[in-house]
Design a protein around this nucleic acid. Structure first.
Lengths: 111, 111
DNA sequence: CGGGATCCCATTGGATACTG
DNA sequence: CAGTATCCAATGGGATCCCG
């Protein structure tokens, strides 16, 4: 690895972690990467025991950081679709690598 | 992206986040990726305002997860060197991508 | 130098109930 | 269906002091 920029001010890794560091954020992004479009309760079912309050907040944070889009359909019953923004999509290869890393290094020897 | 494994049980992304999800863990791993070997106070200086207690705990967790090595030299004054384990090194390409992503998507338009 | 001990606070997330 | 509201628990991290 390059040894030039040992200093980070501010550290780009840290800045990125601040955006995607929530407990469920990467998993949400991962689900959206796989499914392209997901509704609120679909995500809820796919995330292990997440509460609606937490899911809402993580989605709002991802949205305000510009990583996902929130499309509201003015219908009854309500319909809201979440999807990756262009910026969010630029995380796809990282998401995939994280998934593969987990498959290789963790699920092989489950704790 | 592949749409087959929409289900995760347990989700590899989530498992990975559990290992590297600490506030400073990726930054520590990143510093070790760049410098190969770092001592306690070197890391302390490189991480923005981290307290020794927090640094100690994050290092211990990374160590018990097998991502870093802790080499103690029985000298006076004490000397402890931290470095990436082989497993830790396997995160290098992810670390680099995260750094580059941050450089591209965040430092361009600082909040 | 590389921590440990202690105390404290803030943020995050959970539980449950409710609603337009 | 897609959230809100309210309250609460836990975890993480900070501040400070101390030590071998």
């Amino acid at each position: 690895m390059d040894k030039q920029h040992s200093q980070c001010s501010p550290c780009p890794v840290e800045l990125t972690v601040n955006m995607i560091g929530g407990k469920y954020k990467l998993v949400i992004l991962y689900q959206l990467a796989i499914h392209e479009v997901r509704r609120f309760n679909e995500l809820r079912r796919e995330l292990p025991n997440i509460t609606p309050r937490t899911l809402t907040r993580q989605l709002r944070e991802l949205e305000s950081d510009g990583l996902i889009n929130r499309q509201v359909y003015p219908e009854i019953p309500p319909k809201v679709e979440y999807s990756l923004s262009e910026t969010g999509k630029s995380l796809n290869s990282i998401l995939l690598q994280i998934e593969n890393w987990g498959l290789k290094h963790i699920t092989n020897n489950p704790k």
